[in-house]
């Protein structure tokens, strides 16, 4: 297998404080890699480093064989990395449909003049965008929602799914999901799990931050464990579950409870 994304000794510090230090791991094409760790361990910072919101202060990030350091966030999206946010960041005043259509931006190209003149090519492109949007809404289970409804009016769980649909519209090869099941009940979490599996079947590699341990254990092929901005363990879920360092750092010094 070939590494789709690899991080080599990546570090990020803010004003001298290291938020991430010495992070090295790879994500194989087609796998689901889980990133776990206590709050403040640097998981979301890692996503921000990969997507260039916070350019790394040390080390290199290599995507698909090429370093992506120095690229602006939109260029990284163009290369094929898409993400969701921990605290959902939809375009709240836009409709459900438009949110997904925006996601299609980097896979379409009509500019001002073609748009205003409605050239044949532009109309074809818009049709394609709408079709793809419908498919994606169906994929995430929002086919029943009114596509013209404002995104902020959707129930919370639907907003999470809409965000996933939006990021899939960019046709990513790597999808970064930041706590997709946060704040969801058991049934909804199961649906998210199903959705992640469906997304993987599309051939998308997934990097998953999640606190719900049962979801992580079921969904992920491998796990990387963070604590205080460093990687403390890496391996398949079964091994991580037994790793004493992980148990101590993450689940607490005593034998872990269910919802650590």
């Amino acid at each position: 297998m070939k590494a789709l994304l690899s991080l080599e000794r990546v570090g990020k510090s803010f004003g001298g404080l290291a938020a991430l230090a010495d992070i090295s791991f790879s994500v194989e094409a087609g796998e689901i890699l889980g990133i776990i760790g206590p709050n403040g361990a640097g998981k979301t910072t890692l996503f921000n480093v990969i997507t260039a919101f916070f350019p790394p202060t040390e080390g290199t990030v290599i995507f698909d064989g090429r370093p992506i350091g120095g690229l602006p966030p939109h260029a990284i999206a163009h290369r094929g990395i898409s993400r969701t946010f921990q605290n959902i960041r939809l375009f709240s005043a836009m409709s459900v449909e438009e949110n997904v259509m925006v996601g299609r931006h980097c896979r379409s190209r009509a500019g001002v003049w073609r748009g205003v003149l409605r050239t044949r090519g532009q109309r074809g492109e818009e049709r394609e965008i709408r079709e793809r949007t419908r498919e994606l809404l169906e994929l995430v289970g929002l086919e029943g929602a009114d596509p013209g409804r404002e995104a902020r009016a959707l129930p919370y769980g639907h907003q999470r799914r809409l965000e996933i649909a939006r990021s899939l519209a960019a046709e990513p090869r790597l999808l970064l999901l930041d706590e997709p099941a946060a704040g969801m009940n058991e049934a909804e979490t199961r649906e998210v799990f199903e959705l992640i599996r469906r997304v993987r079947l599309l051939g998308v590699t997934i990097l998953l931050i999640e606190h719900d341990m049962s979801l992580v254990m079921k969904a992920c092929d491998r796990l990387v464990v963070f604590n205080f901005g460093r990687m403390i363990a890496e391996g398949p879920p079964a091994a991580i579950r037994k790793d004493p360092r992980v148990i101590e750092a993450y689940l607490g010094p005593e034998e872990g409870s269910e919802d650590a």
Binding site: T51, F53, P72, P73, H74, A75, A77, H78, S82, R83, F85, R89, L90, F91, S92, A93, M94, V102, G103, H105, C106, R166, S167, A170
Partner: peptide
């Protein structure tokens, strides 16, 4: 509506 999210979606802001 959200500059950062727009950028993450590949829009050259």
């Amino acid at each position: 509506l959200d500059e950062k999210a727009a950028e993450a979606m590949g829009i050259p802001v």
